[in-house]
Amino acid sequence: MDFHIRDARPIWQQLSEQLKLRIVTGYYAPGSRFPAVRELAAEAGVNPNTMQRSLTQLESEGLLITNRTVGRTVTTDEATLNAIRSALARKETGEYLEAMGRLGYSRKECAEMITEGEEQ
């Protein structure tokens, strides 16, 4: 999973989102040690301070836990992870429905298309 940075939005926000995705999809397993700021920054090709800002955001949302001795770990709290996952899912759905709406499809037609697709 590579980092994709488009420059028009604050980079720290883009990083937060992409890291969130990595956490929620299990790329960083719950309870596992999170990589160091410098390492992540180098991987993403961004400034460590910028990466730090995005990690602080994740901490404030409860996705990362900073322990004085162990460092940063991914949360094990199921509730938090599920809440984030469903928030992301809702966002995707919203964007999907909006796109389909522009094409002229109603919700019902979308639902039919999905069940059709599943059967195949």
Binding site: I5, A8, R9, I11, Q13, G45, N47, R53
Partner: peptide
């Protein structure tokens, strides 16, 4: 720009802008 914390714009010998890069992105979109 990806690696910058801050950015300084110089125009005709004067500093016309000095902001945090992400803040500038946020303010101007």
């Amino acid at each position: 720009e990806q690696v910058l914390d801050e950015v300084v714009f110089l125009k005709e010998g004067r500093v016309v802008l000095h902001r945090n890069a992400d803040d500038l992105r946020e303010e101007t979109g």
